[in-house]
């Protein structure tokens, strides 16, 4: 078991013929993901690594039974690609694309609610369940199957932390990169409630960063609803206010979104916060023993 992914996860890659699409389709396959089709309008009939390319998502659903999608299309066309996936009946959409206008995401998220489609991202590294499937761009080699769930607003920092967990002898049930944008689909709270019900997951790692209030909201939710051990790391403790630290969402503005406020919120909810990413495995060990 894992969350959101299972042996029946059949993926369509939107934007499969682009540079990134090609590269990661191959890597996902090597991880064991069932990629059933690709979509690039105007390229129907082509094959990528033996995978059929269609003009529409609908065809990928009808002909190949696709139920999940990963989106690599350029930002100006991302909204349309997501709507197309939702309309075709896809229930899990992962958006890798960066720089999607937030107005587009606001609309898409309202639309996805009506159709009960789960959106992860944009500007995210995707989701990985070792031994089951991967829909995303995280490096394959760092993962080992285990009992730790990971939810993160970051990309590379997630790899760093997953790698540290793996090297410490533990493993991952499911890891999800939620994305670094101000408006994202899946949140810490969504992920936490799924992990709470997942028998395989024994503890959860949250990787947050400055900006917004997602961590504070997660802390409140944990206090009320989560009895599995949770540990956290917050990036940007040394970041000055008013500066966008790489991610569009990573900014302390008008006194909100500081690392201090997040660390405090977590600690008040009984969530231990690591000072350094490399300290997480030890915190995790301790939390799981208790």
């Amino acid at each position: 078991m894992a969350i959101l992914l299972n042996k029946n996860t059949k993926v369509v890659v939107q934007g499969i013929t682009g540079h990134q699409g090609l590269f990661h389709t191959k890597a996902m396959r090597e991880f064991g993901t069932k990629i059933v089709a690709g979509v690039t309008p105007g390229k129907e009939g082509e094959l990528v690594d033996g995978i059929p390319v269609y003009d529409t998502v609908k065809k990928a659903v009808v002909e190949k039974g696709a139920n999940s999608s990963i989106i690599f299309v350029p930002a100006p066309f991302t909204k349309d690609a997501i709507i197309e996936a939702i309309d075709a009946g896809i229930k899990l959409v992962i958006i890798i694309t960066e720089h999607v206008p937030f107005h587009d995401m606001v609309e898409v998220l309202q639309y996805s609610k009506i159709h009960n489609t789960r959106i992860i991202g944009p500007n995210c590294p995707g989701i990985v369940a070792p031994g089951i499937s991967k829909i995303g761009i995280m490096p394959n080699s760092i993962f080992r199957k285990g009992n730790v769930g990971v939810l993160s607003r970051s990309g590379t920092l997630t790899y760093e932390i997953v790698n540290a967990i793996t090297e410490s002898g533990m493993g991952i049930s499911t890891a999800i990169g939620l994305g670094g944008d101000p408006v994202i689909g899946m949140t810490f709270i969504d992920g936490l409630s799924l992990f709470q019900d997942d028998v395989e997951t024994e503890a959860v790692v949250l990787v947050g960063e400055i900006g917004g209030t997602a961590e504070e909201e997660a802390a409140e939710f944990i206090e009320k609803n989560i009895d599995k051990p949770v540990v956290a790391y917050i990036a940007g403790r040394s970041a000055p206010p008013g500066k966008r630290m790489g991610h569009a969402g990573a900014i302390i503005s008008r006194g909100r979104g500081t690392a201090d406020s997040k660390v405090k919120a977590f600690e008040n909810a009984g969530v231990k916060v690591a000072h350094l990413p490399q300290d997480l495995p030890e915190l995790l060990h301790k939390a799981m023993k208790q």
Binding site: S154, L157, E209, S238, M245, G246, H247, A250, L276
Partner: peptide, 12 residues
Amino acid sequence: ANGAGLTMATLD
């Protein structure tokens, strides 16, 4: 560094 989160963590 590579990635916003890792770069922030490096600064920290």
